[in-house]
Lab assay of single mutants.
Amino acid sequence: TEEYEYTDEQQAREAAREWREKGYTVTIEEHNGRWRVKTG
């Protein structure tokens, strides 16, 4: 599992979409105004 943090929701969603296209399972969670994208 890798985790990436973004301050911008749009960036987080874009990144998540790219990971999904590569076949990863992706979770996005908002935490204190930051967006965490977890792949695994």
Rank of each mutant, 00 (worst) to 15 (best):
Y24C: 03
T7M: 13
A12G: 02
R36P: 01
Y24D: 02
K38D: 05
E29Q: 08
D8K: 04
E18M: 14
D8M: 05
A15N: 04
A12Y: 01
E9Q: 06
T25E: 11
Q10H: 12
E2W: 15
T39K: 14
D8S: 13
E14K: 10
W35G: 00
R13L: 14
K38T: 14
Y24V: 06
Y4F: 13
W19Y: 07
Y6S: 02
R17T: 07
A16E: 04
H31K: 11
K22Q: 09
E9T: 02
Q11P: 03
D8A: 04
E3C: 15
E9D: 03
A16R: 01
V26P: 03
H31E: 10
W19G: 02
E29K: 07
T25Q: 11
E9M: 06
W35K: 00
Q10I: 11
W35M: 01
E9N: 03
A16K: 02
E2Y: 15
Q10E: 12
V26A: 07
D8E: 07
R20L: 13
R17H: 09
A15E: 04
T25N: 11
G33I: 01
V37S: 00
Y24M: 06
R34Y: 11
A12I: 01
T27Q: 08
Q11T: 13
A15Y: 05
R13I: 13
E2V: 14
E18N: 10
V37Y: 02
K22I: 04
A15K: 10
V26H: 01
R34E: 05
E18S: 11
V37H: 01
R34F: 13
E5S: 07
V37N: 01
I28A: 02
R17P: 01
W19N: 02
Y6A: 02
R36I: 15
R36D: 03
W35D: 00
E14W: 06
E9A: 07
V26N: 01
D8I: 05
K22H: 06
D8W: 04
G40W: 15
E3N: 08
E3K: 06
Y4E: 08
E9V: 07
E30T: 07
T1D: 11
Y4N: 06
N32E: 11
T1C: 09
N32R: 05
R13T: 08
Y4R: 08
E18K: 13
N32S: 07
A16M: 08
Q11Y: 05
E18H: 13
T25M: 10
R13C: 05
T7S: 12
E2S: 13
T27L: 08
E9W: 09
A12D: 00
E21D: 12
R20M: 13
E18V: 14
E30A: 08
Q11L: 10
A15M: 07
Q10L: 12
A12P: 00
R34I: 15
Q11A: 14
T39A: 11
Y6P: 01
E30F: 15
E3F: 15
E3D: 09
V37W: 02
N32C: 04
R34L: 13
R20A: 13
A15Q: 07
T7E: 15
E2A: 14
R36Y: 15
E14H: 08
E14L: 09
V26K: 00
D8Y: 06
R36K: 14
Y4S: 06
R36S: 11
E30W: 14
G23R: 02
K38E: 06
T1I: 14
E3W: 15
Y4L: 08
V26F: 02
V26C: 05
T39S: 06
T27Y: 11
G23T: 01
G40P: 06
A12H: 00
T1H: 13
Q10W: 13
Y4G: 05
W35N: 00
E2N: 14
A16N: 01
N32H: 08
Y4C: 06
K38Q: 09
W35A: 00
E29T: 13
T25F: 13
R34T: 13
I28N: 01
R34M: 13
T25K: 10
K38M: 10
E2F: 15
G23F: 02
N32G: 09
N32P: 03
W19R: 03
T25D: 10
G33K: 04
E29I: 12
K38V: 15
H31D: 10
